[in-house]
Each structure stands twice: as C-alpha cells, then as structure tokens.
Amino acid sequence: MKLSELFSLERGNSPLVNYGALERGIHAVRLEMCQSTYMNERAPFDYVAGRTEAMQTGLARMVGAALDAVQALAPTSALS
C-alpha cells in the first residue's frame, strides 16, 4: 500500500472530508486517543480524574503548538 493510500481521505476519515477543503486552503486534523488515557474501559466506564487532567494538559499543549505553527506559516491576511 502506498503512503498516499494509507492516509487517503476516503479511508474512513469522513470528518476530514466534511470539514477540510484543501483546494481552498482549509485543512482538518483528526486526533484519536485510546479510551484508557482518560477513562476506565470496564463498567461503569467512568472518567478517571487524574488521567483526565493529565490528558487535557497534554492535549492543550499539542493543540497550542499546532496553532502556533499554523500562525507562523500562514500569511497574515489568511488569518484575519
């Protein structure tokens, strides 16, 4: 399988297809996480506070870094 096929928008990435529009410069990112990073995977399937807080902190840092990179790469007029 070619790398382009592996990351193809037709392979179950419908949110990317629905929200991204590369021809117009609109990109979409899909992030998937294992449920065990923030909740018990056995009944009662509740959230685990310590895991949730750590996950939120890491996620906020990742999203912040991604936004910083986009702003650094994008022309000023594209962000207004």
Rank of each mutant, 00 (worst) to 15 (best):
G25D: 05
S14G: 06
G64I: 03
Q35R: 15
P15L: 02
L9T: 02
S4R: 04
A60L: 13
R42G: 00
G50M: 03
G25P: 03
A28Q: 00
M62P: 00
A21L: 13
F7L: 01
R61F: 06
V29E: 06
Q56T: 09
L79G: 02
M33Q: 06
Q56K: 13
Q56L: 15
N13W: 09
G20L: 00
S14R: 08
L59H: 04
G58N: 11
F7W: 11
H27E: 13
G58L: 00
D68K: 04
N13P: 04
S80F: 10
L22C: 03
G58C: 03
R51I: 00
G58R: 01
G25S: 05
I26L: 15
Y38A: 05
S77Y: 01
E32F: 12
R42T: 10
H27S: 14
Y38E: 02
V63E: 03
L16Q: 07
T76I: 03
E23S: 08
L73P: 04
S36C: 11
H27G: 13
L6H: 06
L79I: 13
D68G: 00
A43N: 14
A65H: 09
Q35D: 12
A74Y: 12
T76D: 08
R42A: 07
M1G: 13
A78R: 13
N40L: 12
T57V: 00
M33I: 09
R51H: 14
G50K: 04
Q56R: 12
A69H: 07
Q71D: 12
E23D: 07
E10F: 08
N13R: 11
A65V: 06
R51D: 01
G50H: 14
T37D: 15
V48F: 02
R42P: 00
N13S: 05
T76L: 04
A21D: 10
G12A: 01
V17D: 02
E53A: 14
L31E: 02
Y19M: 13
L9G: 01
E32S: 11
A78W: 02
R51F: 00
E32Y: 12
L79V: 03
E23F: 05
G25N: 04
A66T: 15
R51S: 05
M39N: 02
